[in-house]
Design a protein around this nucleic acid. Structure first.
Length: 486
DNA sequence: TGAAATGTTGGGGCG
DNA sequence: ACGCCCCAACATTTC
């Protein structure tokens, strides 16, 4: 009996997995494989993402084994590995779920072409999006560049998705195919030095964990989402981002789970929170839409005005302080330390730290995007690119450049009791909340009583907020003028 | 999914 | 009682 390769990529789940479903229905034996690519030039897997991937693969392999199958792990160029497998074994087809990064699209096209020449049947599916970027265009057939009309038309066009449940039994994978297989450990995705304790404490990884987390959110937190999603000291957000990135859960599953919950509880608060939450899932869709239609955006500003933006040239020291959570601005340092410790940062705080980097410090947004890429467990090219370009003001439907966050006001508004700052910046634990978000303005006796000597126990701010704000606005004026001239 | 500057209004203290 | 001023509170404009 011949085999069908099921090439897992960013779809590390069994339920609602169209490629796996097609392989089962084909009547051939599904052979689940995962190929760890050699580091790519452009966007090599970040350290935190690699950590997550390791555990996600372990979980997927266990699930497949529990159904009688297995996950065969390889390392190297997918083109070569799939070609070798097809040549060596009786393989009639290859299936996968589509990726949308420019490099991945090119890679998949090449593989598809070659396999078809070898008369191997190839099929690919959508497992990661509510709707694929080329299926959803404006009336004039051009891509959307503004979120609100994008989401309005998308959310009204979709209603119910048919979701396949996970297979309960799979045929075993023939022993001879398993020969060349590597262990997940041998991929060396885990850190050499054990810096991952904070990540381990925060995260449960895998398909089951994703659904448990979603259920907890929908039942417990969704009713307060509209308000709590802005409070970093409260666990008010869904935490779905890493699961979505690796495909441990799909946006269609999330959509259906939320909509189903509306039937159980259609109180105004739940509907409002649920719709606000789905809107965030919509931002993810919008990010993929933009990345697909504007594939240069991971590296370059979409708004061409920003091509010659007068970013600073010498900024290594400030960049390092920002990365290490030593800027002397409490809410920023709290966020950067949360990121380092857990591989994740609250969305509100992501905007605050990004605003400080790009506006107050005038450091190119690409530097921030690179750091997030390496440190986030949910690092996702589409979301990361969109998020940074949004804050920097150079993207599609971005915040206007002059929208500059004041981290003191943001801290006072969204962390009024200081729970968040005190948790991640414990050296400020004794500071009264009146001065917590601006210790450099605190009277000497307040600092003394809180056992803080600025510059010693906690840094002086690396940038003057009012002055740097004016400087950023002056840069913006320059860019605006140049835009008019050209 | 801003913040700061500027403008407007209205209550209350006070001569 | 009345007008004047102050200024907080809110609204609008500007960056």
């Amino acid at each position: 009996m011949s085999h069908v390769l099921v090439w897992f990529r960013r779809d590390l789940r069994l339920a609602d997995n169209p490629a796996l479903g097609a392989a089962i229905e084909s009547g051939h034996t599904p052979v689940p494989i995962y190929i760890h690519d050699e580091p790519q030039e452009q966007w090599p897997l970040g350290a935190a993402s690699a950590w997550w991937l390791h555990h996600s693969l372990v979980s997927l392999k266990q699930s497949l084994q529990a159904q009688g199958s297995d996950l065969l792990v390889f390392q190297g160029d997918p083109y070569k590995i799939i070609k070798d497998l097809v040549e060596q074994y009786d393989i009639s087809g290859v299936v996968w779920n589509r990726c949308y990064e420019p490099e991945a699209i090119a890679r998949d096209q090449q593989i598809k072409q070659t396999l078809k020449e070898q008369t191997v049947e190839v099929q690919s599916f959508n497992a990661s999006l509510l709707i694929e970027p080329w299926q959803h265009l404006k009336k004039d057939a051009t891509p959307y560049r503004v979120f609100t009309p994008f989401w309005k038309s998308l959310s009204s066009a979709i209603d119910v998705f048919e979701l396949a449940s996970a297979p309960t039994q799979l045929p075993p994978v023939a022993k001879k195919i398993k020969q060349a297989v590597q262990s997940i450990e041998s991929l060396k995705l885990l850190p050499g030095i054990p810096w991952d304790q904070g990540l381990q404490e925060k995260w449960q990884i895998g398909e089951n964990a994703a659904h448990e987390e979603l259920e907890h959110f929908v039942e417990q937190a969704m009713i307060d989402y509209s308000h709590h999603r802005d409070i970093p000291g409260v666990r008010g957000t869904s935490l779905m981002s890493p699961y979505l990135h690796f495909g441990e859960i799909s946006p269609k599953q999330i959509w259906m789970h939320v909509k189903d919950h509306f039937h159980q509880d259609n109180s105004a608060g739940v509907i409002k929170g649920g719709e606000a939450f789905l809107r965030e899932v919509g931002w993810r869709e919008f990010s993929y839409h933009l990345l697909y239609h504007f594939p240069h955006t991971p590296d370059e500003s979409l708004n061409e005005r920003f091509t010659d933006f007068p970013w600073r040239k010498e900024y290594q020291q400030d960049l390092k302080a920002w990365q290490q959570g030593q800027t002397g601005i409490p809410i920023v340092d709290a966020g950067m330390r949360e990121l380092w410790h857990t591989g994740w940062m609250h969305n509100r705080v992501r905007m605050i730290v990004a605003s400080l980097l790009t506006k107050n410090l005038l450091i190119p947004w690409q530097e921030g995007a690179r750091w997030f890429w390496d440190t986030l467990v949910d690092a996702d090219l589409a979301n990361n690119t969109q998020g940074w370009q949004w804050t920097a003001g150079c993207g599609a439907d971005a915040a206007p450049y002059f929208r500059i966050f004041n981290p003191v006001l943001q801290g006072e508004r969204f962390d009024p009791e200081g729970d968040y700052v005190k948790h991640w910046v414990p050296e400020l634990k004794e500071m009264p909340k009146k001065w917590l978000h601006k210790p450099w303005e605190a009277p000497d006796e307040v600092l003394m009583k809180a056992s803080i000597e600025l510059g010693k126990d906690y840094p002086e701010p690396i940038v003057d907020l009012a002055g740097s704000r004016k400087r950023a606005l002056a840069c913006w004026d320059e860019v605006k003028k140049q835009g008019k001239e050209s």
